[in-house]
Each structure stands twice: as C-alpha cells, then as structure tokens.
Design a binder for these strands. Structure first.
Lengths: 200, 200
DNA sequence: ATTAAAAAATAGACACTGCTCAATTTTTCC
DNA sequence: GGAAAAATTGAGCAGTGTCTATTTTTTAAT
C-alpha cells in the first residue's frame, strides 16, 4: 500500500504516541514493543519507524508525556491545597501518581537513551518543570526568595523523595518492613527544611 | 551429546554465575542475554536453563552477588575509617561502588522479578545486610542503642542516599546542574541526624 | 561384563524482538 | 493523463527467552 491519508503525519504521530502510552501503561517497559504499537494503530512496523526515527525516540516521547501528566497532577494537587501543608501535598502527589501509574512512571527511569542520542531541547524543558515546582514550594515553605541555596536544596529533596518512591514501588521498602514510605519521605523533607530554617 | 563431566553441577553453576557477572558488568542489564553467557562458558543455552530454572533466576543470583560485593566494600571502607566520620565514609562508599560498577549496580534495580516468583530466603538475607550496616552506624552516630526508631530512620536514610545515587548515575542530577551529588546526599543525612539528635 | 535406568547436555524449533529496505501503491502536481 | 514524489508495506536479518525431543554419558543392577 501507499499513502492512505487516513491520517496526516502529525495525526499519525500522536496516534502512535497515545497508543504507545496505553501499551506502556498496560505491559510496562520490559514488554513494550514497536510491533505491538504498530498493530494497535493499524499500521505496519515500517510506518512506525518512518514516523519515529527509532524505538528509543518513541519511548522518550512517551516518557516526556508521562512527565507532563505527572507535573500537571502535582500542580493541581497544590492548587487544591491552598494554604494547607503544601509540602505534604507535594510529596503525597509525587507518590500518588507513581503508584497509580507504576508502569508509566517506572518507564521514565528504566529507559536509558543510548550513547550518542541526546534529548530534544523541548523535552528537556518539559522535564525541568518538576525542579521548578520544588524550588517554588521550598522557597515558600522557608519564606525566602529562590536563590542558589534553594535551588540546590530543591534538587536534593527531589532526590530524597525519589529514593523513597523508587524503593517503595520496587518493593524493597516493603520487604524491609516499611509500610508508610510516604510518611518517611515527608519526615526527611521536614528534617531538612527545619535545619534550613534555623541556619538561614 | 550428554554429560561431559568437565564440570560438576556446582562448578557449572558458579562458572555461569561468574561469567554472567562479567557480562552484566560489560554490557549492562539491557544487553544481557542467556545465549551470550552460555557461549562464554562453552555450553549450550539448554544447559544454562538446566542449571538455572529461568533467566530471572540467573540475573537474581548475579545481583545478589553484586549486593554482597557492595556491602563488603562498604564494610571495608568503614573498617579503614576507624573513628573518623563514619557516616561520610558510608555515604561515599555507597556512591563509589555504584560509580565504579554502574552496570552491575544498576542491574540490581533494573531487574524486577516477575509476579509469582519469590526471592529465595538466603538471597533475601544477603540483601538485608545493607540495612543492618546502616542501623549500626546510625546507632553509633546518635550514640543510642538500636531500637524501632533507629531501624525506621536507617531505612529512610538509605532511601535518601539511594535517591541521590540513582539520579546521579542516570544523569538526571548532572542535567539539573548538580555536580556534587555525594555531598548533597551527605547534607541530607546530616540534617536528619541533627534533628534526631535534638529530638531524642 | 551386560544391560537397563537415570541424568546431563544438546540441537532445533517456536514465537517473539528491533530494525532495514526494495517493492508497491497512492497521492500530488504539472 | 502521466510523471514524480511520498507513504506504506512486509519480507528478511540477526537476535531474544523458553521449551521439547533427542542423544550421549554415567551409574546401578544384574
């Protein structure tokens, strides 16, 4: 067959992205495959490789989409929180999204782009938003404007929460007997905020 | 062909484990394959599946071995440290091993055992040693005997350091502009130890 | 020593994977 | 209408995990 013009280039791209996203959510990174995506959208493998340069590019696009949904989820949680304990809300939202979409969330970190391949600038920017949210909330919690120290602390606290989340989803924390990983992550964040508040 | 008795069952097992370990270190979880291991030890795939029930079992055995080497590495670092800042040494050793053996270290967390498969008890015990080391050192740092609160804190601080380490190796922290992830992890651990010391 | 049973190792097959590319079909444009 | 361009296909390659039938070797029993 040749050009079917059932869908334009862009339509096809977002169709495959959407279906790829669904597949990733269902089967996870490990069982994700280009052929399955192609079959689901009703095109052949060749067409998929025509639209996406490589499978890594498709996975990366899916992951960026997940990242966007994740940060949006956290922003909305913050919006609903108002003046309440926004740090707790943020940490909880971090976990909630991951636990509600384990396959999608884990795929972000399971996927390592091959050496030589670089992330497009727009995708990189999309992913930087998480850091920005953290910076804003920590600045607010400490009642101090964002400066270098806040930026460094924000990154580090994201890593702290991430560590708890990643081990919780992998089952390691449960196996060690920890049943409230979110509470523990929040404890650690509070510890550091307390120290930062005193030392200011 | 049949039994060659070049190697006994146990010899064959540890041969495949050793060669599998080497392969994992060279190519990483993503490019690891049963056939390559079989070829390297000079046996066929079938023999490998005769010795190891499934590929997941081999990977799990390799990862447990890595875990053992890792905890040994940290213990030795602590032994050399003597009375010096043992917490700093421990955090540094956590990172050092991971950075020196990225493929082996990441494989531990890349591998998710399929639903239904459970980790053998001896392997689980081997992996629990990391928690024990952390508990002992935190108990020592706070000059308090190990109790429930120390156990909970130790797990959480391991998760904290882990988060920094995993994001550092994945390149995320570097991309966010953080160039001293070990120092940041140590900062967070110190924050929590300080709070724990005051609140005791 | 001969033979039968058990164990070990293998080759080969199955259905799958990422990826490529010549061939084919459709659309577009003159 | 016809030529050029673009889109789509699916066969093909080299690889994967896993399983089964088969062959070979070892062991045990006569």
């Amino acid at each position: 067959m040749g050009r079917r013009s059932d869908h334009s280039r862009e339509e096809l791209r977002s169709l495959m992205l959407e279906e790829g996203r669904r597949l990733m959510g269902e089967v996870g990174f490990h069982r994700f495959s280009a052929r399955k995506v192609a079959e689901r959208v009703g095109y052949s493998v060749g067409t998929l490789y025509n639209v996406f340069e490589t499978l890594d590019a498709l996975v990366m696009a899916i992951n960026t989409r997940t990242f966007t949904a994740w940060t949006a989820f956290m922003s909305e949680a913050l919006d609903r929180a108002g003046r309440r304990d926004r740090i707790a809300v943020l940490v909880q939202a971090y976990f909630d999204f991951a636990q509600a979409n384990p396959n999608l969330w884990m795929a972000i970190f399971d996927h390592r782009l091959p050496p030589g391949m670089v992330m497009p600038e727009d995708e990189r920017a999309e992913r930087a938003k998480l850091g920005a949210i953290a910076e804003a909330e920590i600045s607010r919690a400490l009642d101090r404007p964002i400066d270098d120290r806040i930026v460094v602390l924000a990154r580090s606290l994201v890593a702290t929460v991430h560590g708890h989340c990643v081990l919780a989803l992998g089952g390691s924390l449960a196996e060690m007997g920890e049943r409230r990983p979110v509470a523990r992550a929040l404890d650690r964040v509070r510890d550091s905020l307390r120290v930062a508040a005193r030392g200011a």
